[in-house]
Amino acid sequence: MRIALVSEHANPLAVLGGADAGGQNVHVGALAAELAARGHDVTVYSRWTATGVPVRVVTDEGYAVEHVPVGPPEEVPKDDLLQYMPAFARYLEMRWSERPVDIVHAHFWMSGVASTRAARRVDLPVVQTFHALGTVKRRQQGDHDTSPPERLGLERGLCRRVDHVIATCTDEVEELAAMGLPARRATVVPCGVDTDLFRPQEVPPKPHRTLLSIGRLVERKGVGNAIEALAMLPGVELRVAGGPAPSGLHDDPEVRRLREVATRSGVSERVHFLGGVGRERVPELMNEADLVVAVPWYEPFGIVPVEAMACGRPVVGSAVGGLLDTVLPGVTGELVPPRRPDVIALAVRRLLEDPARRVAYGQAGRDRAVALYRWSRVAEATEEVYERIVAAATRKAVAP
Protein backbone atom coordinates (compact mmCIF):
# COMPACT_ATOMS: atom_id res chain seq x y z
CA MET A 1 0.00 0.00 0.00
CA ARG A 2 0.96 3.63 -0.49
CA ILE A 3 0.42 5.14 2.96
CA ALA A 4 0.39 8.81 3.97
CA LEU A 5 0.98 9.52 7.65
CA VAL A 6 0.11 13.13 8.48
CA SER A 7 1.67 14.52 11.66
CA GLU A 8 1.50 18.29 11.41
CA HIS A 9 3.58 19.19 14.49
CA ALA A 10 5.29 15.93 15.48
CA ASN A 11 8.06 15.26 12.99
CA PRO A 12 9.77 11.91 13.58
CA LEU A 13 13.09 13.55 12.64
CA ALA A 14 12.77 16.18 15.39
CA VAL A 15 14.99 16.25 18.46
CA LEU A 16 12.93 14.97 21.39
CA GLY A 17 12.46 16.79 24.65
CA GLY A 18 10.95 20.09 23.53
CA ALA A 19 7.55 21.30 24.67
CA ASP A 20 5.80 19.64 21.71
CA ALA A 21 8.30 16.90 20.81
CA GLY A 22 7.72 13.62 22.55
CA GLY A 23 5.73 10.42 22.33
CA GLN A 24 3.84 11.26 19.14
CA ASN A 25 7.11 11.86 17.27
CA VAL A 26 8.39 8.47 18.39
CA HIS A 27 5.08 6.78 17.59
CA VAL A 28 4.86 8.15 14.05
CA GLY A 29 8.49 7.35 13.25
CA ALA A 30 8.39 3.83 14.64
CA LEU A 31 5.09 3.04 12.92
CA ALA A 32 6.38 4.41 9.61
CA ALA A 33 9.58 2.35 9.90
CA GLU A 34 7.74 -0.85 10.71
CA LEU A 35 5.21 -0.35 7.91
CA ALA A 36 8.05 0.30 5.49
CA ALA A 37 9.76 -2.89 6.67
CA ARG A 38 6.54 -4.73 5.84
CA GLY A 39 6.85 -3.59 2.23
CA HIS A 40 4.66 -0.49 2.19
CA ASP A 41 5.48 2.86 0.56
CA VAL A 42 5.23 5.30 3.49
CA THR A 43 5.52 9.09 3.57
CA VAL A 44 5.16 11.23 6.69
CA TYR A 45 3.94 14.80 6.12
CA SER A 46 4.99 17.28 8.80
CA ARG A 47 5.22 21.08 8.84
CA TRP A 48 8.61 22.65 8.20
CA THR A 49 10.31 24.24 11.21
CA ALA A 50 13.52 25.53 9.60
CA THR A 51 14.91 26.73 6.31
CA GLY A 52 17.61 24.87 4.47
CA VAL A 53 16.21 21.39 5.11
CA PRO A 54 15.32 19.15 2.15
CA VAL A 55 11.66 19.11 1.20
CA ARG A 56 11.73 15.31 1.12
CA VAL A 57 14.04 13.14 3.22
CA VAL A 58 14.29 9.38 2.78
CA THR A 59 15.26 7.85 6.12
CA ASP A 60 17.57 4.90 6.76
CA GLU A 61 14.48 2.99 7.93
CA GLY A 62 12.98 3.18 4.44
CA TYR A 63 10.21 5.74 4.88
CA ALA A 64 10.17 9.35 3.69
CA VAL A 65 9.47 12.58 5.55
CA GLU A 66 8.08 15.47 3.54
CA HIS A 67 8.39 18.91 5.10
CA VAL A 68 5.27 20.92 4.29
CA PRO A 69 6.15 24.58 3.63
CA VAL A 70 3.28 26.33 5.40
CA GLY A 71 3.54 28.88 8.18
CA PRO A 72 6.85 30.35 9.33
CA PRO A 73 9.91 28.08 8.98
CA GLU A 74 10.47 27.93 12.72
CA GLU A 75 9.15 26.18 15.80
CA VAL A 76 5.57 27.26 16.55
CA PRO A 77 3.62 25.98 19.58
CA LYS A 78 1.18 23.36 18.37
CA ASP A 79 -1.76 25.22 19.88
CA ASP A 80 -1.03 28.07 17.44
CA LEU A 81 -0.97 25.93 14.29
CA LEU A 82 -4.68 25.74 13.45
CA GLN A 83 -4.46 28.90 11.33
CA TYR A 84 -2.09 27.10 8.95
CA MET A 85 -4.21 23.99 8.41
CA PRO A 86 -6.09 25.29 5.31
CA ALA A 87 -2.75 25.84 3.56
CA PHE A 88 -1.53 22.48 4.85
CA ALA A 89 -4.63 20.86 3.32
CA ARG A 90 -4.05 22.54 -0.03
CA TYR A 91 -0.49 21.22 -0.07
CA LEU A 92 -1.65 17.68 0.74
CA GLU A 93 -4.31 17.82 -1.96
CA MET A 94 -1.72 18.91 -4.52
CA ARG A 95 0.76 16.20 -3.53
CA TRP A 96 -1.84 13.41 -3.45
CA SER A 97 -3.09 14.49 -6.85
CA GLU A 98 0.47 14.27 -8.20
CA ARG A 99 1.49 11.19 -6.24
CA PRO A 100 -1.63 9.20 -5.32
CA VAL A 101 -1.80 7.20 -2.11
CA ASP A 102 -4.14 4.42 -0.96
CA ILE A 103 -4.89 5.60 2.56
CA VAL A 104 -4.27 8.56 4.86
CA HIS A 105 -3.58 8.16 8.58
CA ALA A 106 -3.86 11.45 10.46
CA HIS A 107 -2.09 11.83 13.80
CA PHE A 108 -3.51 14.48 16.17
CA TRP A 109 -6.68 16.44 15.60
CA MET A 110 -5.17 19.23 13.51
CA SER A 111 -3.68 16.68 11.14
CA GLY A 112 -7.19 15.27 10.84
CA VAL A 113 -8.61 18.69 9.98
CA ALA A 114 -6.11 19.12 7.13
CA SER A 115 -6.27 15.48 5.99
CA THR A 116 -10.05 15.24 5.73
CA ARG A 117 -10.24 18.49 3.78
CA ALA A 118 -7.57 17.32 1.31
CA ALA A 119 -8.76 13.71 1.08
CA ARG A 120 -12.34 14.73 0.33
CA ARG A 121 -11.19 16.45 -2.86
CA VAL A 122 -9.13 13.50 -4.10
CA ASP A 123 -11.44 10.77 -2.77
CA LEU A 124 -9.17 9.05 -0.24
CA PRO A 125 -10.11 7.17 2.96
CA VAL A 126 -8.84 8.69 6.21
CA VAL A 127 -7.99 6.92 9.47
CA GLN A 128 -7.59 9.13 12.55
CA THR A 129 -5.50 8.72 15.70
CA PHE A 130 -6.10 11.58 18.14
CA HIS A 131 -3.23 10.86 20.60
CA ALA A 132 -5.08 13.19 23.00
CA LEU A 133 -8.65 14.44 23.16
CA GLY A 134 -9.64 18.04 23.78
CA THR A 135 -12.58 17.00 25.94
CA VAL A 136 -10.26 15.27 28.39
CA LYS A 137 -7.73 18.08 28.34
CA ARG A 138 -10.43 20.69 28.97
CA ARG A 139 -11.91 18.62 31.81
CA GLN A 140 -8.54 18.19 33.51
CA GLN A 141 -6.94 21.58 32.87
CA GLY A 142 -9.92 23.93 32.85
CA ASP A 143 -8.79 27.51 32.32
CA HIS A 144 -5.18 26.34 31.94
CA ASP A 145 -6.04 24.56 28.69
CA THR A 146 -4.30 26.45 25.87
CA SER A 147 -6.01 24.58 23.02
CA PRO A 148 -7.85 26.67 20.42
CA PRO A 149 -11.52 27.14 21.40
CA GLU A 150 -12.57 25.44 18.14
CA ARG A 151 -10.87 22.17 19.09
CA LEU A 152 -13.79 20.37 20.69
CA GLY A 153 -16.17 21.07 17.83
CA LEU A 154 -13.60 20.12 15.22
CA GLU A 155 -12.86 16.84 17.01
CA ARG A 156 -16.55 15.98 17.07
CA GLY A 157 -16.68 16.78 13.36
CA LEU A 158 -13.77 14.43 12.71
CA CYS A 159 -15.70 11.65 14.44
CA ARG A 160 -18.34 12.08 11.74
CA ARG A 161 -16.03 12.55 8.75
CA VAL A 162 -13.15 10.09 9.09
CA ASP A 163 -13.58 6.52 7.90
CA HIS A 164 -12.22 4.99 11.10
CA VAL A 165 -10.51 5.92 14.36
CA ILE A 166 -7.54 4.03 15.75
CA ALA A 167 -7.68 4.66 19.50
CA THR A 168 -4.70 3.93 21.72
CA CYS A 169 -6.67 2.65 24.73
CA THR A 170 -10.15 1.52 25.79
CA ASP A 171 -10.68 4.65 27.91
CA GLU A 172 -10.37 6.71 24.73
CA VAL A 173 -13.05 4.64 22.98
CA GLU A 174 -15.47 5.52 25.78
CA GLU A 175 -14.64 9.21 25.41
CA LEU A 176 -15.14 8.98 21.64
CA ALA A 177 -18.52 7.30 22.11
CA ALA A 178 -19.61 10.26 24.22
CA MET A 179 -18.56 12.48 21.29
CA GLY A 180 -20.81 10.54 18.94
CA LEU A 181 -18.46 7.97 17.40
CA PRO A 182 -20.13 4.53 17.02
CA ALA A 183 -18.11 1.69 18.54
CA ARG A 184 -17.94 -0.12 15.19
CA ARG A 185 -15.87 2.76 13.79
CA ALA A 186 -13.13 2.53 16.39
CA THR A 187 -10.35 -0.02 16.88
CA VAL A 188 -7.93 -0.05 19.80
CA VAL A 189 -4.31 -0.34 18.70
CA PRO A 190 -1.90 0.67 21.50
CA CYS A 191 1.28 2.64 21.16
CA GLY A 192 4.35 0.49 20.75
CA VAL A 193 7.77 0.04 22.29
CA ASP A 194 11.12 -1.05 20.87
CA THR A 195 11.60 -4.21 22.90
CA ASP A 196 15.15 -4.62 21.59
CA LEU A 197 16.23 -1.19 22.84
CA PHE A 198 14.12 -1.35 26.00
CA ARG A 199 15.14 -4.60 27.69
CA PRO A 200 16.48 -5.78 31.04
CA GLN A 201 20.14 -5.02 31.68
CA GLU A 202 22.64 -5.97 34.34
CA VAL A 203 23.51 -2.88 36.40
CA PRO A 204 25.83 -2.48 39.38
CA PRO A 205 24.20 -2.28 42.83
CA LYS A 206 23.38 1.20 44.18
CA PRO A 207 23.92 2.50 47.71
CA HIS A 208 20.37 3.90 47.84
CA ARG A 209 17.00 2.66 46.74
CA THR A 210 16.10 4.72 43.68
CA LEU A 211 12.91 5.74 41.93
CA LEU A 212 12.77 7.14 38.40
CA SER A 213 10.34 9.66 36.94
CA ILE A 214 10.92 10.39 33.26
CA GLY A 215 9.14 12.39 30.59
CA ARG A 216 8.17 15.92 29.66
CA LEU A 217 8.22 18.27 32.64
CA VAL A 218 4.72 19.69 32.73
CA GLU A 219 2.58 19.96 35.84
CA ARG A 220 -0.01 17.40 34.75
CA LYS A 221 2.65 14.66 34.66
CA GLY A 222 2.45 14.53 38.47
CA VAL A 223 6.18 14.74 39.18
CA GLY A 224 5.40 17.12 42.04
CA ASN A 225 3.24 14.43 43.63
CA ALA A 226 6.08 11.92 43.35
CA ILE A 227 8.37 14.41 45.09
CA GLU A 228 5.82 14.93 47.87
CA ALA A 229 5.57 11.15 48.29
CA LEU A 230 9.32 11.03 48.88
CA ALA A 231 8.81 12.80 52.22
CA MET A 232 7.12 9.58 53.42
CA LEU A 233 9.93 7.35 52.06
CA PRO A 234 13.05 7.97 54.16
CA GLY A 235 16.32 6.94 52.56
CA VAL A 236 14.82 6.73 49.05
CA GLU A 237 16.07 8.90 46.19
CA LEU A 238 14.18 10.15 43.14
CA ARG A 239 15.78 10.81 39.77
CA VAL A 240 13.81 13.12 37.47
CA ALA A 241 14.73 12.91 33.79
CA GLY A 242 13.26 15.27 31.23
CA GLY A 243 12.99 18.93 30.41
CA PRO A 244 15.85 21.08 29.08
CA ALA A 245 19.49 20.10 28.87
CA PRO A 246 21.25 20.06 32.26
CA SER A 247 22.74 23.48 31.56
CA GLY A 248 19.25 24.97 31.24
CA LEU A 249 17.65 23.49 34.35
CA HIS A 250 18.10 26.62 36.49
CA ASP A 251 16.12 28.72 34.02
CA ASP A 252 13.24 26.30 33.49
CA PRO A 253 10.01 27.41 35.21
CA GLU A 254 8.74 23.89 35.86
CA VAL A 255 12.08 22.75 37.30
CA ARG A 256 12.05 25.77 39.60
CA ARG A 257 8.51 24.90 40.71
CA LEU A 258 9.46 21.27 41.36
CA ARG A 259 12.53 22.32 43.34
CA GLU A 260 10.29 24.49 45.50
CA VAL A 261 8.04 21.46 46.07
CA ALA A 262 11.11 19.44 47.09
CA THR A 263 12.26 22.15 49.50
CA ARG A 264 8.82 22.44 51.12
CA SER A 265 8.70 18.66 51.44
CA GLY A 266 12.15 18.51 53.02
CA VAL A 267 13.56 16.19 50.34
CA SER A 268 15.62 18.52 48.15
CA GLU A 269 18.80 16.54 48.89
CA ARG A 270 17.15 13.34 47.63
CA VAL A 271 15.69 14.67 44.35
CA HIS A 272 18.08 14.74 41.40
CA PHE A 273 17.17 16.54 38.19
CA LEU A 274 19.00 15.02 35.23
CA GLY A 275 17.60 17.24 32.49
CA GLY A 276 16.75 15.97 29.04
CA VAL A 277 18.43 12.70 28.14
CA GLY A 278 18.99 10.97 24.83
CA ARG A 279 16.60 8.16 24.02
CA GLU A 280 19.46 5.67 23.95
CA ARG A 281 20.15 6.39 27.64
CA VAL A 282 16.57 5.84 28.82
CA PRO A 283 16.80 2.03 29.13
CA GLU A 284 19.91 2.39 31.30
CA LEU A 285 18.15 4.85 33.61
CA MET A 286 15.16 2.56 33.91
CA ASN A 287 17.28 -0.47 34.69
CA GLU A 288 19.18 1.46 37.37
CA ALA A 289 15.92 2.27 39.20
CA ASP A 290 14.28 -0.05 41.70
CA LEU A 291 10.97 0.96 40.18
CA VAL A 292 9.53 3.57 37.82
CA VAL A 293 6.94 6.07 39.04
CA ALA A 294 4.53 7.43 36.40
CA VAL A 295 1.72 9.30 38.16
CA PRO A 296 0.15 11.79 35.73
CA TRP A 297 -3.14 13.51 36.49
CA TYR A 298 -4.37 12.26 33.10
CA GLU A 299 -2.65 10.49 30.21
CA PRO A 300 -3.99 9.61 26.75
CA PHE A 301 -1.73 6.54 26.60
CA GLY A 302 1.54 6.90 28.48
CA ILE A 303 4.54 5.21 26.89
CA VAL A 304 6.80 5.40 29.96
CA PRO A 305 5.09 2.53 31.86
CA VAL A 306 5.35 0.30 28.77
CA GLU A 307 9.04 1.15 28.31
CA ALA A 308 9.64 0.41 31.99
CA MET A 309 7.85 -2.93 31.69
CA ALA A 310 9.96 -3.79 28.63
CA CYS A 311 13.03 -3.13 30.80
CA GLY A 312 11.71 -5.48 33.47
CA ARG A 313 10.99 -2.70 35.96
CA PRO A 314 7.88 -2.65 38.16
CA VAL A 315 5.66 0.42 37.77
CA VAL A 316 3.67 2.55 40.18
CA GLY A 317 1.27 4.46 37.96
CA SER A 318 -1.89 6.53 38.06
CA ALA A 319 -5.19 4.80 37.36
CA VAL A 320 -5.95 7.04 34.37
CA GLY A 321 -6.21 6.80 30.59
CA GLY A 322 -3.96 4.31 28.88
CA LEU A 323 -2.35 3.16 32.12
CA LEU A 324 -5.61 1.37 32.92
CA ASP A 325 -4.80 -0.91 29.96
CA THR A 326 -1.04 -1.22 30.22
CA VAL A 327 -0.30 -1.69 33.95
CA LEU A 328 -1.85 -4.76 35.55
CA PRO A 329 -2.21 -4.19 39.33
CA GLY A 330 -0.71 -7.03 41.29
CA VAL A 331 0.99 -8.40 38.16
CA THR A 332 3.25 -5.76 36.52
CA GLY A 333 2.89 -2.92 39.01
CA GLU A 334 0.38 -0.96 41.05
CA LEU A 335 -2.16 1.70 40.10
CA VAL A 336 -2.97 4.56 42.45
CA PRO A 337 -5.36 7.53 42.32
CA PRO A 338 -3.85 10.64 40.72
CA ARG A 339 -2.73 13.54 42.94
CA ARG A 340 -2.40 11.31 46.03
CA PRO A 341 1.20 11.42 47.34
CA ASP A 342 0.22 9.40 50.41
CA VAL A 343 -1.07 6.50 48.29
CA ILE A 344 1.93 6.73 45.97
CA ALA A 345 4.23 6.46 48.99
CA LEU A 346 2.34 3.44 50.34
CA ALA A 347 2.52 1.56 47.04
CA VAL A 348 6.22 2.37 46.62
CA ARG A 349 7.06 1.37 50.19
CA ARG A 350 5.36 -2.01 49.85
CA LEU A 351 7.25 -2.77 46.66
CA LEU A 352 10.60 -1.63 48.02
CA GLU A 353 10.11 -3.89 51.04
CA ASP A 354 9.39 -6.92 48.85
CA PRO A 355 12.28 -7.67 46.44
CA ALA A 356 10.74 -10.96 45.29
CA ARG A 357 7.55 -9.17 44.24
CA ARG A 358 9.57 -6.56 42.34
CA VAL A 359 11.32 -9.33 40.42
CA ALA A 360 8.03 -11.05 39.63
CA TYR A 361 6.44 -7.79 38.48
CA GLY A 362 9.46 -7.06 36.32
CA GLN A 363 9.38 -10.44 34.61
CA ALA A 364 5.63 -10.23 34.01
CA GLY A 365 6.01 -6.70 32.67
CA ARG A 366 8.66 -7.77 30.19
CA ASP A 367 6.49 -10.65 28.98
CA ARG A 368 3.50 -8.33 28.59
CA ALA A 369 5.47 -5.69 26.68
CA VAL A 370 6.84 -8.25 24.21
CA ALA A 371 3.48 -9.94 23.73
CA LEU A 372 1.30 -6.85 23.32
CA TYR A 373 3.35 -3.71 22.65
CA ARG A 374 6.29 -4.54 20.39
CA TRP A 375 6.21 -2.44 17.24
CA SER A 376 5.86 -5.37 14.86
CA ARG A 377 2.57 -6.31 16.52
CA VAL A 378 1.34 -2.70 16.58
CA ALA A 379 2.15 -2.28 12.87
CA GLU A 380 0.42 -5.55 11.99
CA ALA A 381 -2.76 -4.47 13.80
CA THR A 382 -2.63 -1.05 12.13
CA GLU A 383 -2.12 -2.68 8.74
CA GLU A 384 -5.22 -4.81 9.31
CA VAL A 385 -7.28 -1.65 9.89
CA TYR A 386 -5.88 -0.07 6.72
CA GLU A 387 -6.75 -3.14 4.66
CA ARG A 388 -10.35 -3.14 5.90
CA ILE A 389 -10.82 0.55 5.21
CA VAL A 390 -9.21 0.45 1.75
CA ALA A 391 -11.32 -2.57 0.80
CA ALA A 392 -14.50 -0.80 1.96
CA ALA A 393 -13.56 2.33 0.01
CA THR A 394 -12.92 0.23 -3.11
CA ARG A 395 -16.30 -1.49 -2.81
CA LYS A 396 -17.99 1.87 -2.42
CA ALA A 397 -16.21 3.27 -5.47
CA VAL A 398 -17.31 0.42 -7.76
CA ALA A 399 -20.84 0.04 -6.40
CA PRO A 400 -23.54 0.83 -9.03
Results as ranks from 00 to 15, higher is better:
residue 73 P to D: 11
residue 73 P to K: 12
residue 74 E to Q: 12
residue 74 E to C: 15
residue 74 E to S: 10
residue 75 E to W: 06
residue 75 E to D: 11
residue 76 V to F: 07
residue 77 P to L: 08
residue 77 P to N: 06
residue 78 K to E: 14
residue 79 D to P: 05
residue 79 D to I: 10
residue 79 D to C: 09
residue 79 D to E: 15
residue 79 D to T: 14
residue 80 D to L: 15
residue 80 D to I: 04
residue 80 D to V: 12
residue 80 D to N: 15
residue 80 D to E: 15
residue 81 L to T: 09
residue 81 L to C: 09
residue 81 L to E: 03
residue 81 L to N: 03
residue 81 L to M: 15
residue 82 L to C: 09
residue 82 L to P: 06
residue 82 L to T: 08
residue 82 L to M: 01
residue 82 L to S: 03
residue 83 Q to F: 09
residue 83 Q to C: 06
residue 83 Q to S: 09
residue 84 Y to K: 04
residue 84 Y to A: 15
residue 84 Y to F: 11
residue 85 M to R: 09
residue 85 M to Q: 14
residue 85 M to C: 03
residue 85 M to K: 05
residue 86 P to K: 11
residue 86 P to T: 15
residue 87 A to R: 05
residue 87 A to F: 01
residue 87 A to N: 10
residue 87 A to G: 00
residue 88 F to H: 01
residue 88 F to G: 02
residue 88 F to L: 08
residue 88 F to Q: 01
residue 88 F to S: 02
residue 88 F to T: 04
residue 89 A to D: 01
residue 89 A to N: 03
residue 89 A to E: 08
residue 90 R to C: 02
residue 90 R to I: 12
residue 91 Y to S: 03
residue 92 L to M: 02
residue 93 E to D: 06
residue 93 E to I: 02
residue 93 E to G: 05
residue 94 M to D: 14
residue 94 M to I: 09
residue 94 M to G: 09
residue 94 M to C: 13
residue 95 R to C: 08
residue 95 R to H: 15
residue 95 R to Q: 13
residue 95 R to W: 10
residue 96 W to R: 01
residue 96 W to A: 05
residue 96 W to P: 08
residue 96 W to C: 08
residue 96 W to D: 02
residue 96 W to V: 00
residue 97 S to L: 12
residue 97 S to V: 03
residue 98 E to S: 10
residue 98 E to L: 14
residue 98 E to G: 09
residue 98 E to K: 11
residue 98 E to Q: 14
residue 98 E to M: 15
residue 100 P to T: 10
residue 100 P to Q: 06
residue 100 P to L: 07
residue 101 V to N: 02
residue 101 V to L: 07
residue 101 V to Q: 06
residue 102 D to H: 05
residue 102 D to L: 02
residue 102 D to G: 01
residue 102 D to R: 00
residue 103 I to R: 00
residue 103 I to N: 00
residue 103 I to S: 07
residue 103 I to K: 07
residue 103 I to W: 03
residue 104 V to P: 11
residue 104 V to M: 06
residue 104 V to D: 10
residue 104 V to I: 14
residue 105 H to V: 02
residue 105 H to E: 08
residue 105 H to W: 00
residue 105 H to Y: 04
residue 105 H to P: 06
residue 105 H to K: 06
residue 106 A to K: 09
residue 106 A to W: 03
residue 106 A to M: 07
residue 107 H to I: 14
residue 107 H to T: 05
residue 108 F to K: 04
residue 108 F to L: 13
residue 108 F to G: 03
residue 108 F to W: 10
residue 109 W to K: 13
residue 109 W to Q: 15
residue 109 W to F: 12
residue 110 M to P: 08
residue 110 M to I: 05
residue 110 M to S: 12
residue 110 M to C: 12
residue 110 M to W: 04
residue 111 S to F: 00
residue 111 S to H: 03
residue 112 G to V: 02
residue 112 G to Q: 08
residue 112 G to K: 07
residue 113 V to Y: 02
residue 113 V to F: 04
residue 114 A to Q: 10
residue 114 A to W: 01
residue 114 A to C: 02
residue 114 A to S: 07
residue 114 A to Y: 09
residue 115 S to H: 01
residue 115 S to I: 03
residue 115 S to A: 12
residue 115 S to R: 01
residue 116 T to Y: 00
residue 116 T to F: 07
residue 116 T to A: 00
residue 116 T to G: 00
residue 116 T to H: 00
residue 117 R to P: 05
residue 117 R to C: 04
residue 117 R to I: 07
